[in-house]
Design a protein around this nucleic acid. Structure first.
Lengths: 114, 114
DNA sequence: ATCAGTCATCGGCCATCGGCGATAAACGAT
DNA sequence: ATCGTTTATCGCCGATGGCCGATGACTGAT
């Protein structure tokens, strides 16, 4: 484990998923999806100060990153958080933070000065 | 806790830091910085297939996101990971993942099917 | 068949990103 | 003062992102 913490492919994947998360609107979409724990559709649009087409784009980004799943349910689409993918991402992030921590400082989980 | 998991300001900050992380080159910069646990300078450039100016830009992005700190040391600049900021970010991410998890599923940390 | 509702996609607009080479700025050494 | 070294900044470019309105595809109901 002294060679490379992230393979190029891993790095690319992690970066892609982080990029999908790295937008307030998309964070809000995920939050909305989590609140109604089952899938919703146009409610996401209602909760954002953006046009429907824009929200649709954001949803697409999240879906392409594999963070949410789409289910076509009649005339409307329902989305839900892919908890497995989110968990995997969390694992990757844990690995990243562990790699970036000073040497073997594995116990540095929740002890923050501020 | 039924209202908003992320305030608009929090959301903005988190998104900004995630965006800083969301690039393979910048991940590599952080990795390099972590390996030489003290600050380095042009070694970062040597470890990347990019021009010096490009790397400098990436470093700037990381610095502006508050993830690394710059110390001018004579003619050369030394960078080091801001572990406090990284820890804070990790905390924010933990909060995010907790908020996105199904209801009160706090124990879903490392049990992933795939 | 027609209409209304829902969502995805298209095209356009502008801002930002990511890359580069070139240049400037700061410093140590000669 | 003049180099050489190191880093930051400046244009420049193509590509991408984010936003919108408009349109299209699909469905269910009339």
């Amino acid at each position: 484990m002294t060679d490379a913490f992230l393979s190029p492919a891993e790095s690319e994947l992690l970066a892609a998923q982080l990029r999908a998360l790295a937008h307030p609107a998309r964070l809000k979409v995920l939050e909305t999806l989590a609140r109604h724990q089952t899938c919703v559709c146009g409610e996401i649009v209602a909760g954002l100060p953006l046009a429907q087409s824009t929200v649709s784009q954001h949803i697409k980004v999240l879906a392409e990153a594999g963070l949410i799943r789409v289910t076509v349910d009649g005339p409307r689409s329902c989305y839900c958080i892919d908890h497995a993918a989110l968990g995997a991402l969390r694992g990757r992030l844990d690995g990243l933070f562990a790699a970036l921590a000073p040497a073997g400082d594995a116990a540095r989980t929740a002890a923050l000065p501020d």
